[in-house]
């Protein structure tokens, strides 16, 4: 059995190393003995058969908006997969187009694909910093470059609760629904946090009706050391420009 990881718009939505999330999950599945095939989707392609998981990454809003238009005709297929328990892992603006609605900087509100239970307001000041989050999946250490506010539905569960940057701004991140995650964390987050990658991998394997052996991998100590360095540098100030 081959597990297909479907990566949507890898060329256009990949500015936060989003292919690293796909590479990490693929790597961890292969190391556990599964055959993995990564397929990609761009405008005009056919979505293909139901995949083992769907990934979408972060990019310029203009690119995400184009992706939203391209995905509108296949929205019902994506919704069917989502509700059937195919894990989705979505980051940044790629996740925003999967939300209910998006309010743009000019105040206009547009519809998202309505998979994840949150709405987006794309008007916040840039906030760029390292993140330290608690989550029920474990501690998450990451990097984020925020330029929008996500408002979860009342009943929706945030992925994590944590602090961001040297000023330790308190902040909830993302949303977790059944087997799927939408997040604003970068780094890429799954490469830095193999335990979260394994949670995703396990959902994929489970959905395929197989058992997952979550034995740690030798590379985990590398990621652990990388997280420790980020935690030491939480105060790092990132120079940004206003959008």
């Amino acid at each position: 059995m081959t597990i297909t990881l479907l990566h949507l718009f890898p060329e256009d939505l990949g500015v936060s190393g989003d292919s690293g999330n796909v590479q990490t999950v693929a790597y961890r599945l292969r190391e556990r003995g599964f055959d993995v095939n990564v397929s990609t989707y761009a405008s005009g392609d056919s979505l293909g058969d139901k995949p083992g998981a769907v990934f979408i990454g972060n990019g310029p809003w203009a690119a995400a908006h184009r992706a939203l238009e391209a995905l509108a005709p296949v929205r019902s297929t994506l919704r069917d997969w989502f509700s059937a328990g195919v894990p989705f892992f979505a980051v940044g603006t790629g996740a925003e187009i999967l939300a209910r609605t998006i309010t743009l900087r000019d105040g206009a509100e547009i519809s998202g694909l309505d998979l994840f239970p949150f709405t987006v307001v794309r008007d916040r000041d840039r906030l760029v910093a390292y993140n330290d989050c608690d989550s029920r999946l474990g501690r998450i250490v990451a990097f984020s470059d925020l330029s929008s506010e996500w408002l979860n539905d009342d009943t929706a569960e945030p992925l994590g609760h944590g602090v961001i940057g040297g000023k330790r701004v308190a902040r909830d991140d993302g949303v977790i629904v059944a087997s799927s995650i939408a997040t604003q964390l970068g780094g890429p987050v799954l490469a830095l946090n193999p335990h979260i990658a394994d949670w995703v991998a396990e959902r994929i394997v489970e959905h395929a009706g197989r058992a997952f052996d979550a034995t740690p991998l030798p590379t985990d100590s590398l990621a652990e050391n990388a997280r420790a360095v980020i935690l030491e540098n939480m105060d790092q100030v990132f120079t940004t420009i206003a959008l």
Binding site: G14, V15, S16, G17, D18, S19, G20, Q23, F143, D145, G186, G187, P188, A191, N233, Q236, F238
Partner: peptide
């Protein structure tokens, strides 16, 4: 080093 604080793009 930390002079390159975000290097998530190395995966690309």
């Amino acid at each position: 080093d930390e002079g390159t604080p975000d290097m998530s793009w190395i995966y690309d």
